[in-house]
């Protein structure tokens, strides 16, 4: 694939559904979700990867959707906050935990926090260390998520309302 055009046909699978669109190469995933697909759960807080409000999962990994050109994601699987519960009516356990813990106020960072937390759980299970993981911990083993681990790993998601303690508690609630 290669041309001098400024638009390309791109297919993304979003929350399980394939979407084929002709995208302006400048369009980032966040704007594609919000403007083209009407999925406004992912929020624009800074547009520069500095706040985490736009966090979604691409091929299962949490990323800042404001910094990803959609055209480069051709063929990828995207999960947004709207798709976390799958086909079911029941919310994702993290969404329930956020509600029960009152882990938000204005709600603007909340979808990003929740998607980020989904990613955190997967990363820890896959043995990904963090800045606060004991350097003597065995490599490749799942990392137990204590409070310090949760806080460090979620630090890419700003919350100006200051719901941080409650968010950490909500994540603890769903740790198996």
């Amino acid at each position: 694939m290669g041309n001098h055009q400024h638009h390309s046909r791109t297919t993304l699978r979003v929350n399980g559904k394939p979407h084929t669109l002709t995208v302006d190469h400048r369009r980032v995933l966040l704007d594609l979700l919000r403007e083209d697909l009407g999925l406004t759960g992912a929020k624009k807080g800074c547009d520069h990867g500095q706040c985490g409000a736009c966090t979604v999962l691409v091929d299962g990994r949490r990323v800042n959707s404001c910094l990803l050109f959609a055209v480069a994601l051709d063929g990828c699987d995207v999960t947004t906050v709207e798709g976390l519960s799958g086909d079911g009516e029941e919310p994702h356990p993290l969404q329930t935990a956020f509600l029960e813990r009152d882990a938000f106020q204005c709600g603007y960072c909340t979808p990003g926090q929740i998607c980020s937390a989904v990613g955190v759980l997967a990363e820890a299970a896959a043995g990904h260390p963090s800045h606060v993981t004991d350097t003597a911990a065995p490599s490749g083993e799942p990392v137990e998520l204590d409070r310090a681990e949760i806080k460090e790993r979620l630090s890419g998601n700003l919350c100006r309302c200051g719901a941080y303690p409650r968010i950490a508690e909500a994540v603890e609630d769903v740790i198996p």
């Binding site: 919000r34 406004t40 906050v81 509600l99 709600g107 979808p111």
Partner: peptide, 17 residues
């Protein structure tokens, strides 16, 4: 519990944009 909580955690609460 917050009345608008479900919309906020589900990503359906609508903001000005």
């Amino acid at each position: 519990e917050r009345r608008e909580g479900r919309e906020k955690v589900g990503g359906t609460a609508r903001y000005a944009a």
